[in-house]
Design a protein around this nucleic acid. Sequence first.
DNA 1: TTACATTTGACAATAACTGTCAAGTAAATT
DNA 2: AATTTACTTGACAGTTATTGTCAAATGTAA
Lengths: 102, 102
Amino acid sequence: METVGQIIRAKRETLRLLLRQVAAYLDIDQAVLSKIERNERKPSKENIIRLAEILKFDKDELMIQFMSDKIAYEIAAEDCAERVLKVAEKKVKYLKTHPIKN
Amino acid sequence: METVGQIIRAKRETLRLLLRQVAAYLDIDQAVLSKIERNERKPSKENIIRLAEILKFDKDELMIQFMSDKIAYEIAAEDCAERVLKVAEKKVKYLKTHPIKN
DNA sequence: TTACATTTGACAATAACTGTCAAGTAAATT
DNA sequence: AATTTACTTGACAGTTATTGTCAAATGTAA
C-alpha cells in the first residue's frame, strides 16, 4: 500500500522537479518536504493543497489520501478501529444532512 | 444523533452522580467535565477510560463514540468525507494484516 | 575535486491540549 | 431573604504537538 509520501515523491520525480523547486512553491524549507516524502513528517493541509497544484494531482484525491492516512494512523492501534469508522460514517452523514447550529 | 457529551451527562444523571464526584474519579477539575458534557471540550483518552468505569459503560462502546466523534468532526467539512472513510478502512485493514516495521 | 540534490538533527515559534482556579449563575433549602 | 448546592464561565498555566528554519552531513554525478 502506497503512502502519501511515496505518491508525492514518485510524481515529483516523474515531473523532474527538485525538492527545492517544489518546496519553494509550498513556501517551506526543502528539508520539510524531504521528510514528508519519506513519511518522517506529516504534511499540513495547506501543503497538500499546494502539492496537488504543482504536481498536477486531482485535488480531491490527494486530500483523500492525506486524510485517510491520518485517520488510519490514529486508530490503527485500536482493535475496534473498523467499528469506529462505521460509526464515524453515520455521524458524517448525519452532519451533512442537518444544518449546523451556530 | 447523540454526542459523546450528551451520552455521558445522561448516564451520570441516571446514576445520580454529581460532576464533583465523577470529576474526582477522573482526577480532573469538575469545570473540565462540565465542558466535556456540553461538548465545549473534548475528553482525553484517559478521561474516556475512567468515565467508562465509573459510569458503567461498555469501555469499547464509549471509546468508539469518542473516536468516531473526533473523526467525524475533523472531516465533516470536506465534501469527500465519505470517500476518506472508505480509504481509511482499507488502510486500517492493510495495517492490521501486515507486520509493523520498526 | 567540484557541484548539486538530498538528508539529518538541533532549534524556535506557534498552536493545541489538558488541566487549575476563582468568580459567576441558578435553583432548592433553611 | 440568606445560605447552600450544583453547575458554568472565563482567565490562566504547563505541557505537548505542529510546522517551520538553518547549517552541516551525506550521497551522487561531472
